[in-house]
Design a protein around this nucleic acid. Structure first.
Length: 235
DNA sequence: CGTCCAGGTCTAC
DNA sequence: GGTAGACCTGGACGC
């Protein structure tokens, strides 16, 4: 994949039929959040805002091809080190023969695999339960995407109802859904906020309040504030 | 070797 | 509604 004249070009060496092309385009559109129009946010920070540097196009987070994959991966980030997350997701990809396994595959995977191969601990039953509900048609995670008639409150409620998904994970998945209101508060963002602000301590409520003026983009503003040093040319 | 805790969540008060 | 305790795993750390 490459950028060219304002377009995202995806190419491969083998010929691809029309049906596959459509699937690939859908997946890439979702991964790069091409439906996420950030122009209202950029307009709000264009003048006299500490985040004004972001109008050059920052804040577009890479997502997975499906919401299901993002939910499962996010469960694999909770209460463990990043290396553990990588190990679990690598095992899942192996279970899908190189690609992330779909819900049917994960639902049909025995508990022993989650425990003994992926070594997911207590997360295993959570992932399997979500996969089971999706595979059975009782849960449509893709319907949480924007433009499908659900507002942020409804989506948050739906995510929090999932086993293994709490406030942190729900906020994280919602960012990937282009629902940028909630702040992702965890053991990485909290100390990073303190370091950048020079504060000795700050409650979650305090952090939310200080970003509340960004409205529906408060969570995105928080993330940009925390990750500005990831950019080399942020003015 | 034991303790602590990492990009938390759930249950039971 | 707010908060202690338990929870798989495994890497870091002190002893």
């Amino acid at each position: 994949m490459r950028a060219e004249d304002g377009f995202l070009i995806a190419s491969c060496e083998e010929p691809v039929d029309a049906r596959s092309r459509a699937r690939i385009a859908t997946a890439i559109g979702r991964m790069f959040r091409l439906d996420d129009d950030l122009s209202p946010f950029y307009a709000s920070i264009a003048e006299r805002d500490p985040l004004r540097w972001a109008v050059q196009g920052a804040g577009r987070m890479l997502a997975s091809p499906t919401v299901f994959e993002d939910v499962v991966k996010t469960i694999c980030t909770t209460n463990c080190t990043w290396s553990a997350t990588q190990r679990m997701t690598a095992a899942l990809a192996e279970r899908g023969d190189g690609a992330f396994p779909d819900a049917e595959r994960l639902a049909a995977t025995p508990d022993s695999w989650y425990r003994d191969v992926a070594r997911m601990g207590y997360r295993g039953p959570h992932v399997r339960a979500v996969a089971g509900d999706v595979a059975a048609g009782n849960l449509d995670l893709e319907s949480l995407l924007p433009g499908r008639g659900r507002n942020d409150d409804e989506v948050r409620e739906a995510l929090l109802a999932l086993p293994g998904i709490g406030p942190y994970a729900a906020a994280h998945v919602m960012q990937l859904l282009g629902r940028h209101q909630d702040l992702v508060l965890d053991s990485w963002t909290r100390p990073k906020y303190l370091r950048l602000t020079g504060k000795r301590r700050a409650s979650d409520k305090t952090m939310r309040r200080s970003f509340a003026r960004y409205g529906n983009y408060a969570g995105l503003a928080f993330w940009l504030f925390l990750t500005r040093d990831w950019l080399e040319d942020a003015g």
